[in-house]
């Protein structure tokens, strides 16, 4: 009779597994492949936009979403669940951060907030886990003085920086809250999250990751990353590859033309933006 009172679908099995989460991961692994690559100066998110019929209007469906001006997100798994998470992520970035500090959350903070939403669905009554894995890409301004970032792009980090001997010793980390820069995270239905240099999720995640391992190099430029992203997608894509069937979002330099106004000193455009079908076509012709 115990199950009369157990509203939670996610209950431990005797072997210590939460099978509902595993089922959710199965849903993810049946989903369309998405990938993300972190470059020295930005991040690329890419996915295939599959449609079962030529009658669909490709411009009206979208899988890569802007969360804050500097953070974007893509998924593999169940589309409707993703849209709910996008709404919640956008909302929490304001209620939990911008309305308090009048600035947008750093990438890791947003990732943690989204991960909490997903985790709560594994421990609450009357709900099921989200059937999606997410790739969240963002750029942080950082709070440490600029000098530490002034190193030549791609240079190997050394343990001791003589230009700042009295500062905390620099870590090998790239991006993040303190130093600033791009960061890329994966969030799973369980609510666990991982930082990546490059990764893929969904149906062909395994083969895509193997491909990325071969292609990825330290100190990659954003342009090269877009190139690699398309090459990786090409390995796994099932249909035709064009501006209509491929979706790309980038985190790059501030896009001041998207601000909608000009002449305001210090105003900075969004770093996250989606590439137009035309831009994608241009990349594809150069592939």
């Amino acid at each position: 009779m115990a199950d009369r009172y157990s509203f939670s679908l996610t209950t431990f099995s005797p072997s210590g597994k939460l099978v509902q989460i595993e089922y959710a991961l199965n849903a993810v692994n049946q989903g369309v492949t998405s990938l993300g690559i972190k470059a020295a100066n930005g991040i690329v998110l890419a996915t295939e936009k599959k449609s079962s019929t030529p009658l669909i209007d490709p411009a009206s469906s979208s899988k890569i979403s802007l969360i804050t001006p500097n953070i974007g997100m893509v998924y593999s798994g169940m589309g409707p669940d993703y849209r709910v998470l996008v709404d919640k992520a956008r909302k929490v970035s304001h209620t939990g951060y911008k309305r308090i500090y009048n600035e947008y959350p750093p990438t890791r903070i947003l990732v943690q907030d989204v991960a909490r939403v997903m985790q709560e669905a594994t421990q609450s009554g009357g709900v099921r886990p989200y059937g999606v894995s997410l790739l969240i890409a963002g750029y942080d301004e950082g709070i440490e003085p600029e000098q530490q970032n002034a190193k030549p792009a791609g240079a190997e980090e050394t343990a001791v920086d003589d230009s700042a001997e009295d500062r905390k010793k620099t870590t090998g980390k790239t991006g993040g809250i303190l130093k600033g820069g791009p960061s890329l995270y994966q969030v799973d239905p369980s609510g666990s999250y991982f930082p990546w240099k490059a990764t893929a999720i969904g149906k062909s995640a395994t083969s895509a990751k193997t491909f990325l391992e071969k292609r990825y190099t330290e100190g990659l430029e954003l342009e090269d990353a877009v190139h690699i992203a398309l090459l990786t997608l090409k390995e796994t894509i099932e249909g035709e590859m064009n501006g209509e069937t491929v979706e790309i979002g980038i985190v790059g330099p501030p896009a001041n033309h998207l601000l909608g106004y000009e002449g305001v000193e210090g105003a900075q455009g969004p770093r996250f933006r989606k590439l137009s079908p035309q831009e994608i076509e241009d990349y594809l012709t150069n592939l």
Partner: peptide, 15 residues
């Protein structure tokens, strides 16, 4: 604790 960094004066002012 959450952000593993000290709060900046401007951010603190907004808080």
């Amino acid at each position: 604790l959450r952000e593993e960094r000290d709060i900046a004066p401007k951010t603190f002012a907004q808080l």
